[in-house]
Nucleic acid binder design. Structure first.
Lengths: 224, 224
DNA sequence: GACATTAATCACGATCGGCTACTAATTCGG
DNA sequence: CCGAATTAGTAGCCGATCGTGATTAATGTC
């Protein structure tokens, strides 16, 4: 969260970086420079002639020194007034970081599991909730589950990631059959032995072009 | 598009109002006050202490004098620089208007079918495209098809709306069976005779609570 | 070598979904 | 008054898909 400008900036860019620690979603927070024990979503004010994406990338770099595997805009937030920047509106971004990537965060940045997030400004709290909701609802349209995993993973790890995001247990055979039909992954020739039990084959995300899915509609998704 | 402020506003609210005319999606454009034959998405600058939703509602009222049946934020747009407001960023909204509602638009406002939209500022063009993409992609999560229809409709009309949005023909029996299973509509005791042929029963949108859909995942939606 | 443990697959029954064919109710043209 | 045409709505077959329990495979531990 670098430079603070004298005048209120027109808008801020706030980034919700998510990863998985110990089987739970976690968000990256930065220590606020003023408060003693206060934490906030990393953010920065927009500068002149800089795209929003560029600002978001800069904010990511300042906390992680590595780009997230996936990044997307959430929307604009302005109805909750209080925000560290005092700007009128903030534009939120979500970024996904593969689980287990060594995060070179000093004492200024830390991962907080979602159920243990400290008090944030009202606007940032909205942004965080929207980010999580977005990730959960776009799972079947964006490869978010894969972006939370390292490049190579076992099918069990992938299934556990889906179970975490869907908050629902899945049956192993069904999950793999669906995966087969979707042409999303391809096996590598590497295997991983995780202590006891049969070693698991490693896969990588490699979506293939498919015929445009003759399947009709699923109106039952519109359940509410 | 009321008052123009002396200084560049911090941001603008741009509204994409969509409806269906003659079996096609159409967007409402307003005549720009300066240009002779120029059209633009209705927009307004944000005022102090006004929520974004409130601005969007005000913009809708100024062109339609009736609230859209459904409204949602699309996101913030700032990377395309040129915009009538000259603001740094614009926040886009989509609104859906039931087909056939008499739009009391004077010569200052008109519906343009999507394939015949005049040249817009680069940023507004992006907003329009994002709005259409959003409506098309959220069909199975929001009742957008119903918001483009009047309160009472025949199942054939509903099917045609789905076909229009999906750009895909659907089979009548399958569509109705899926509708049955989704508990989304309920029949009224009214019927409509559309010239020749058997009269059709009218339905209304009335989603029912359902047991949380035991069904697993559909990974094949993640096709790309 | 017996057993626990984890991976991966098989196979059965139930449900779903696409499709053809049918019935129902109305208008139109004799 | 009587069909032909037209649109609405349903029945039912059959292949595809899906949930599930059971089975086989490959490793570590004792």
């Amino acid at each position: 969260m670098p430079d603070r400008r004298p005048r209120r900036p027109p808008y801020s860019i706030d980034v919700v970086l998510l990863t998985v620690v110990r089987g739970e979603l976690a968000v990256l927070l930065s220590r606020a420079p003023d408060g003693r024990e206060k934490w906030a979503l990393p953010w920065d004010a927009a500068r002149n002639n800089e795209t929003m994406d560029a600002v978001a990338t800069r904010v990511c770099k300042s906390t992680l020194d590595q780009d997230p595997a996936w990044k997307e805009q959430i929307g604009a937030f302005g109805d909750a007034k209080r925000h560290p920047s005092e700007s009128d509106i903030s534009v939120g971004f979500v970024g996904l970081v593969p689980a287990g990537t060594p995060s070179p965060v000093g004492g200024e940045h830390a991962w907080f599991p979602l159920h243990d997030v400290p008090l944030l400004s009202p606007r940032q709290r909205l942004i965080l909730d929207a980010a999580v909701g977005m990730v959960r609802s776009r799972m079947d349209q964006s490869p978010v589950a894969f972006r939370l995993l390292p490049q190579m993973f076992t099918l069990t790890e992938l299934q556990q990631m889906y179970e975490l995001l869907l908050a629902k247990r899945l049956h192993k055979a069904s999950f793999r059959r669906a995966l087969q039909g979707a042409w999303l992954v391809e096996p590598t020739d590497e295997w991983r032995s995780e202590g006891r039990g049969r070693p698991a084959q490693l896969y990588r995300y490699a979506p293939r072009k498919r015929r445009p899915a003759k399947r009709g509609i699923r109106l039952d998704l519109l359940s509410s």
